[in-house]
Design a protein around this nucleic acid. Structure first.
Lengths: 307, 307
DNA sequence: GCTGTTACATGCGCGACATGCATGCGTCAT
DNA sequence: ATGACGCATGCATGTCGCGCATGTAACAGC
């Protein structure tokens, strides 16, 4: 009694009680990336957070692990030895944890997806339908954003964020669908007028919150004259305005295509090359339940491929 | 660009970023002990803390893991499957972390040991000498306690606690040395008086803070008459009082033996059986740096075996 | 059958830790 | 020389996990 020899002379397992195992994942990321900043991005941390974590790892292992080498950092010998067994141990651990734990049939969580309201306009209905179909107990909540900030990704209330490929974020991202700018016009416009004609002759209906900047910047670069006929705050007004009062508007193709269900519209390709406008899904690996994310990713792809 | 396929379709390693790996050690303890309370003790947690942790594990793994079965709990099938790979993964992880990180030759930490001042009286000098010898840069700090409380073990400032075997604590403990009560008397007492004679005829010098309760309780149970001659607050006064003014006192043998270096004393065995008074070292596995604890344990054994 | 005991769950307050921001500092490139 | 890049750090903040007190269920003893 009072002599827990098993605990003391055991296989060293109980030593782990005093070790912060959560450091191991950032550690592997750091060793594999050989860069504090990249490792931070990979695990969904900020650079200072990873740096602080590195300090803790150094205290834990009694080794510098990485040393400054000119611009970047290099691994110490000890770190080199660690990388393989660490990866192995973590893979084994991952295998333990990765039993499926998200059951769409019964899960009652609130699925929160952040996106612009134009993306919601495109994806929302199909998304809601598919979620209702495959996860009938879950609730879809769409959080409207205009421009993504750091807080958008670190907000625990948000599962995934859908943003245009032009917006940077340090977190893993995956292309959902490509998109482009098209010219939306009234079907009453002269049939022989091409897209450029429409842009120059028709008054523009401009949504002042979204998608305005760079297509118009291109027009101005090229010296294409255009006239703003109306500024509206809600892009949903546009199809009705265009259909009933004429004029043109610039929209993502997918938005325009969806608008066709609301009003009869003429759609023409934008006559100049534009940077990509694909929609990416982005998520913070630190906050995400990965079984759920995997499922949601597949579902979003279903939605996107049906466009 | 913007498509980190490696992160998404990798070996599932990045999933771990969102997993609290610190749950795994309590989890293994729970699965191996089949008891929330015992598992808590093993890893140095309280029962409620382990229960909370169990809740988190259940959320993480989507399984109840243990179900109430009459008095105790039983493992679910899923939990049964988990135990072996989990132990394996943690052993592998332990192997990674367990490179020696405590170097006595260079370590400058403050080594804090909590004990009663009578234990410090016994062990202090040898302890200080051995630490100065083997860890010359380290500092020994003895924290005096009277009776250990929960806070004594959860105090991060305390590395190990030395307590009598009579005091319960939920943490791992190991016997340092056995001890017993002896009768300390002046060498001028009649040589033919045995211990019982001394106890009944001589005035007792009693330290009112430590070790007084149960030897005297035994005397009272047995109906042995005794007379308290003096109450002192500092037990270090006792050897001088006994040697110069006569009387008897009850002390642990090791304390009495150490007192012999201060004054000439007569020591007799206590004439009745008493519960064990061994001194145990106790430490909280959650707070301890195990390399250091291992070293300190060996050092304390060195000290104790030299008594 | 009632009470005492044991074991697990839970509400709550508190403390500690990790995170992120702002900033500093060193290195490299132009 | 100056800007850009990458890592470190002081600091404030938020959150998580711990422990206490308490609740609840099952078993044992008389």
């Amino acid at each position: 009694m009072g002599h827990d020899g098993e605990d003391v002379t055991g296989s060293g397992l109980d030593r782990l009680a005093s070790v912060n195992l959560n450091l191991l994942v950032p550690l592997l990321a750091l060793l594999e990336e050989c860069s504090v900043t990249r490792a931070a991005q990979r695990v969904g941390l900020s650079q200072p957070a990873m740096s602080h974590a590195l300090t803790r790892m150094r205290r834990l292992l009694g080794d510098d692990l990485v040393v400054r080498q000119g611009a970047g950092v290099t691994l110490t010998p000890r770190a080199q030895e660690l990388i393989a067994p660490l990866r192995s141990a973590l893979q084994q651990t991952a295998h333990i944890v990765n039993f499926p734990s998200f059951d769409p049939a019964t899960d009652q969580r609130v699925i929160t997806i952040a996106m612009t309201n134009s993306t919601a306009f495109v994806l929302g209905p199909r998304l809601a339908r598919l979620i209702a179909e495959h996860a009938p107990r879950a609730t879809l909540r769409i959080r409207t954003i205009t421009v993504p900030t750091e807080a958008t990704f670190t907000d625990k209330g948000v599962d995934v964020v859908l943003i245009s490929e032009g917006h940077y974020s340090p977190y893993p991202r995956e292309r959902l669908y490509d998109d482009r700018i098209v010219v939306v016009a009234s079907p009453d416009t002269p049939p022989d007028a091409n897209a450029l004609d429409l842009l120059t002759t028709q008054p523009h209906i401009v949504v002042d919150t979204d998608g305005r900047v760079f297509p118009y910047a291109v027009l101005e670069e090229k010296g294409i004259p255009y006239r703003v006929g109306q500024l509206v705050s809600d892009f949903l007004l546009v199809p009705f305005l265009v259909a009933r009062a004429g004029g043109v508007a610039l929209f993502r193709y997918q938005v325009a295509a969806t608008m066709l269900t609301l009003a009869d519209l003429r759609i023409e390709e934008f006559p100049f090359p534009l940077p990509g406008l694909g929609i990416d899904m982005v998520w913070n690996p630190r906050l995400a339940d990965q079984h759920f994310i995997e499922w949601l990713r597949a579902l979003l792809f279903d939605v996107a491929t049906g466009l």
